[in-house]
Design a protein around this nucleic acid. Structure first.
Lengths: 229, 229
DNA sequence: GTTGGTTTTTAATGGATTTTGATGAGACAC
DNA sequence: GTGTCTCATCAAAATCCATTAAAAACCAAC
């Protein structure tokens, strides 16, 4: 389905942050944190989270204000936490763009279930998982498809795995060990021969010449790199 | 911007239904009602609501069961109501596909705010077609029916489950593990053979040739995908 | 209980992919 | 120049995968 979701927690109380961090991390989420509203907004722009957990009681600025500014540019789901349980508060937050409102103290199981519910409707990586383009070559990770000049290229499992791995880090060199470990497993990190053959097939199918590469560049003794157009 | 949303209320207590009907209608929503689970599911298929408000305490069938059957074919947001506030109940409902969970008694302002929040993320008139088309093939999730050239195709449970799963993500590769986990359960993720046989039967009934597929494409060693016409 | 239909096993086949082995070309150091 | 290292390519063998058929076990409805 999706890779691990990133969750940004904005809360000024360190012990609550720690509690949430541990709980969320134990479920496999990647957690980033902020202790104030301004820091939180900065992190939100930087870390591209898939979900925002926001405590309304912040020292530097009003939580509602943080929510409002966040919603200026993001549609990522927001779960608001608060000790204040007044109905007016809840209505204000929900109408201000929050997707859920949980009052402290809360059960961690319910909290995690609400996190799952919010992430379900907006799957992780939805933002970044657009198709990647490398000139005439398109690698669509969501659909597991590869197009060359608009025509679909039929790739085998290993071929696709190598290309996808390279495509995930455009322009970066991926070491042979990395590729071998991720695709063949940690027991085959020495078999760089496999890699050469698969890359050979890939280049053939993509009409790529190793001496004059359009797509896959070999970095001798190190690994391979996918050129970003 | 948005036209009036339609909200389906499933609750067996007439006075609560009346209360919700009046409150929701005063906000301009169109309200349809059902007093039992089976009636609710029928109304859900018929009335194409934009939001479902579901009370878990129903006389004829378990609320969780209603939720589960509804989620078989619809992604419309669901707000669950319940007097029982046990955390386990909430987790079960949220993981069963509910988007929010409100315990009675509740403040009507907060309830309406949560309704607004749910409708915001899935705007009214988004009235998603429950029937999906793939050229001559139609998969109607709401009625659990499959039509080929307008004629109904009789499918077994597993066959339908596999086809429906593929149809929910048109063009996308669904991995064998995914299909096996969702349909046979997490203990059978290794039995990819089952899958091949069911897909074989499906192709036979849909007059689909694996070497020249109209509908189901096999991605060797990975999974299957349903071609979107 | 019997019956009809469904799901699960079992088995056989052909095809495709992956692995293995062998060979040659280029780069670089000595 | 020679030897060594890495890379690329070709061809075969071995393995894995998909498809099909058919029998056995299972279930639900009657």
């Amino acid at each position: 389905m999706s890779q691990t979701a990133t969750i940004l927690v904005i809360d000024d109380e360190p012990q609550i942050r720690k509690f949430l961090r541990i709980s969320l991390a134990s479920q496999g989420y990647k957690v980033i944190e902020a202790g104030s509203g301004s820091e939180g907004l900065a992190q939100a722009a930087l870390g591209k989270p898939d979900l925002l957990v926001l405590d309304l009681g912040l020292p530097d600025m009003d939580g509602q204000q943080v929510l409002r500014e966040f919603r200026e540019w993001s549609t990522v789901p927001v779960l608001v936490l608060s000790v204040r349980a007044s109905e007016g508060q809840k209505v204000e937050a929900l109408d201000g763009g929050a997707n859920d409102y949980v009052t402290k103290p809360f059960g961690i199981q319910e909290f995690l279930a609400r996190v799952r519910a919010l992430l379900r409707q907006a799957p992780a990586g939805d933002a970044q998982e657009a198709a990647l383009n490398f000139g005439p070559l398109t690698v669509d990770l969501a659909y597991r498809r590869v197009l060359l000049d608009g025509a679909e290229v039929a790739l085998t499992r290993k071929e696709y795995a190598v290309l996808a791995q390279l495509a995930r880090h455009p322009g970066r060199v991926i070491t042979q060990q990395q590729l071998l470990k991720d695709i063949w497993g940690p027991t085959h990190t020495e078999d760089s021969h496999y890699l050469r053959i698969v890359v050979g097939h890939l280049r053939q199918k993509l009409a790529d010449d190793p001496t004059q590469p359009r797509f896959i560049v070999t970095e001798a003794g190190v690994g391979y790199r996918l050129l970003n157009a």
